[in-house]
């Protein structure tokens, strides 16, 4: 098993650069006797060009860690760097704009706007970045076509299957070419076969040199799509390693 600080190897054997670096990250919720320590000193590196799966039992802090890494929750202690940029130094609107420019999101419940078509939903990040609507929708159409949704672009979310909605959510997460893509339980609302199909599509579309992908999941059937797996328990990373080493360790 690798330690969390050891970089993975690129296919040609070279070290990959760290896209995300977490050092002693702590996060608590509540006050006094009701305080819950969600993260208790997390150390983690995620490398550009890899897909890392964050796994562990319910309540171990996976989603909290994902939120801290993505800059939508602030860590109480410790530091998070994204592409050498300390997130702790970003404040308010600056942090929000940073998220819009550099991070792509895929949510467990997809969170597609029900009043917008698949095409319009996929184009939202570009609209947030100020792209003209026509140009943003044209780019969204290209991406949805690549994800096999050419004939579903004008459908509203409720007219799409779970798998199709997840593909639209992936299109939305990738359309602005983010450097980091975070996915929260992308297969939890899908049956096994569809789950594998959409994660294969995500892997094919999202994993690129210079971009890191973090997937929070419980779904062991999709582990083999990961480059590395980080196992969490009780608010900290307990293991990281390749799929083979992790599964071998379990056996």
């Amino acid at each position: 098993m690798n330690s969390s600080s050891q970089p993975v190897q690129s296919p040609d054997g070279g070290a990959l650069s760290a896209a995300v670096v977490c050092r002693n990250v702590e996060k608590s919720f509540g006050q006094g006797n009701a305080v819950t320590r969600a993260l208790t000193g997390v150390n983690l590196e995620v490398y550009a060009g890899e897909m890392l799966m964050l796994v562990g039992p319910s309540g171990c802090g996976k989603t909290t860690l994902l939120s801290v890494i993505a800059g939508i929750l602030d860590a109480d202690n410790g530091s998070v760097e994204l592409f050498n940029r300390p997130m702790g130094l970003l404040r308010g609107a600056e942090k929000t704009r940073f998220r819009g420019r550099f991070i792509g999101f895929s949510f467990q419940q997809f969170n597609l706007l029900p009043q917008l078509t698949a095409l319009e939903n996929a184009g939202i990040p570009l609209l947030i970045l100020g792209w003209p609507r026509k140009k943003a929708l044209a780019r969204a159409a290209e991406l949805l076509e690549q994800l096999g949704l050419a004939d579903r672009m004008s459908n509203f979310p409720k007219q799409l299957s779970g798998g199709q909605q997840q593909r639209v959510a992936f299109a939305r997460a990738l359309i602005h070419e983010p450097k980091l893509v975070v996915c929260d339980e992308p297969t939890s609302a899908l049956d096994g076969r569809t789950g594998e199909q959409v994660i294969a599509a995500l892997r094919q579309m999202a994993v690129k040199p210079g971009r890191a992908v973090i997937v929070v999941t419980h779904d062991t059937r999709i582990f083999h799509f990961a480059d590395r797996i980080a196992r969490m328990d009780d608010g900290r990373i307990v293991d990281t390693g390749s799929v083979k080493t992790m599964l071998a360790g379990e056996q």
Binding site: T96, R99, G100, F105, F107, N111
Partner: peptide
Amino acid sequence: TLKAMGATD
């Protein structure tokens, strides 16, 4: 969701 994706207040 929009806020998470970069829409400012």
